[in-house]
């Protein structure tokens, strides 16, 4: 049977055929016929999602690398401080004060950077933040080795 528009008794709303193709393409993107009546996806969403996922993955890898460097600096600062506190070869009070203030500053700045980085909940560190901070808080920067004790220097001076 040939399609003869002149004999077609049916009418359609104005501009119907202009919009139906758009509606069909949107509904096709809905994926499942049961969803077609309600959920819509932005145009080109599925074409672009791979790029978004890969960019996010790269960004997370960079953040993890940055955090590892911060942890290394933090560990070096803490080691420096502990080494200083247990070092019997420091000679004068002023030397001790200078080294202590430097270590204190280094520790403070690294703690701030460390805490800022750790505040990002996407970063998983794998160790207890509180445990590390508590240990460092317990370090008494006011304590110096007893330099008046002769056994510390008498043998070295010989």
């Amino acid at each position: 049977m040939k399609n003869n528009p002149l004999n077609n008794p049916f009418k359609v709303p104005k501009n119907y055929f202009d919009t139906v193709a758009d509606q069909l393409s949107l509904k096709i993107k809905a994926g499942n016929p049961k969803d077609q009546t309600f959920f819509i996806v932005p145009q080109d969403y599925f074409e672009n999602i791979e790029g978004k996922i890969k960019s996010k993955l790269i960004a997370e890898k960079k953040e993890t690398k940055h955090l590892k460097h911060l942890i290394q600096r933090f560990a070096i600062a803490a080691s420096f401080l502990i080494l200083y506190l247990t070092n019997p070869f420091s000679k004068t009070d002023s030397d001790n004060e200078l080294i202590a203030s430097y270590a204190d500053e280094l520790l403070m700045y690294n703690t701030i950077d460390f805490m800022d980085a750790y505040a990002d909940e996407n970063i998983v560190l794998g160790f207890e933040e509180n445990e590390t901070i508590n240990k460092l808080n317990n370090v008494n920067l006011e304590y110096y080795p007893d330099l008046s004790n002769p056994w510390n220097y008498a043998e070295l001076d010989q």
């Binding site: 009546t37 309600f38 959920f39 819509i40 996806v41």
Partner: peptide, 9 residues
């Protein structure tokens, strides 16, 4: 804008 359902939906 990404919901095209009616009252039934």
């Amino acid at each position: 804008v990404y919901f095209d359902g009616d009252a039934a939906a």
